[in-house]
């Protein structure tokens, strides 16, 4: 297991958003986390990526305990993530958005910048090359010099992927990558996710589009009210009584806006 959580719990005041969750993410596979709205999926992501401190439980990455680490240090270990909203810098070019993704692998400081030291030049070159490489990987090499505000929603999702990939991660967490894009584009994005796996990456995603998930995921974890209620292959999940109950009983099946 690349990432494992044990007894992971997060409380916000009286609300238990994530309750005693144990999951394992296998290297080189696509793990999907599904569940009705408010099931705690995004909170789980926030815990693993260090954005929120957990209330209880542990998270390990390649056997190393990362429970207490802060988000920027977790990113340095090779854990990248995207957000539901892409949060990109709209009035800058695609390239400019992605270059900074490699910043965590550089050491230049203000002194290097002001005196343009060889280290700075070397690292800027490396960051630029990295950005070009990941933009090509996500299929945006021709859009590199356009402003983010001028490109399509799907392209923005790809930029967000590229930014995550520029950090040189081993695993990428994708928070609803297909939200707000059409079925054709969703298919293209799924292909891109498979391509990431082919390159040796591990992917974990939250998604509401069941069709996409069932065709894409190797392993599915189902959360409801912060608790893990099932996990298994897509086939197993589709026939799981408790999952069907959670989705139909919760009445949240079509609520996609969170």
């Amino acid at each position: 297991m690349l990432i494992e959580t044990k007894g992971l719990t997060k409380r916000f005041g009286g609300l238990v958003a994530v309750n005693d969750v144990e999951i394992g993410i296998e290297k080189g596979k696509i793990t999907a986390i599904i569940g009705p709205n408010g099931a705690g999926k995004s909170t789980l992501f926030n815990l693993i990526s260090g954005y929120h401190p957990s209330s209880e439980g542990s998270i390990t990455f390649k056997g190393e305990d990362i429970t207490k680490k802060r988000s920027f240090n977790i990113a340095k270990l090779g854990i990248a993530r995207t957000f539901q909203t892409t949060n990109l810098f709209e009035t800058a070019t695609v390239m400019d958005n992605v270059i900074v993704g490699h910043r965590l692998r550089t050491k230049s400081n203000v002194f290097d910048a002001v005196f343009r030291t060889p280290r700075l030049r070397r690292e800027e070159q490396a960051s630029r090359e990295k950005a070009a490489e990941v933009l090509e990987f996500v299929g945006l090499e021709h859009e590199a010099h356009r402003l983010v505000q001028d490109i399509s929603q799907e392209a923005k999702k790809r930029v967000a992927f590229a930014l995550a990939l520029a950090t040189d991660p081993e695993i990428v967490f994708l928070d609803e990558p297909a939200a707000g894009i059409n079925p054709d584009e969703t298919e293209n994005l799924a292909a891109l996710i498979r391509k990431m796996i082919d390159r040796g990456l591990t992917v974990c995603l939250i998604e509401h589009k069941m069709q996409m998930i069932m065709g894409l995921a190797d392993h599915i974890v189902v959360l409801n009210y912060g608790k893990k209620i099932a996990e298994g292959t897509p086939e197993e999940i589709q026939t799981n009584e408790e999952v069907i109950e959670a989705y139909l009983g919760g009445g949240d099946k079509h609520a996609e806006a969170e």
Binding site: K76, F89, R103, D112, L120, L163, T167
Partner: peptide
């Protein structure tokens, strides 16, 4: 020199979204 370098890009990334900046290791 500062703002046009990768160091300056770091600052802009924070302005744009502190959340995002943290997850890319800043």
């Amino acid at each position: 020199f500062l703002t046009e370098s990768i160091v300056g890009r770091t600052y802009v990334a924070i302005r744009n979204s502190e959340e995002l900046a943290q997850t890319i290791g800043i």
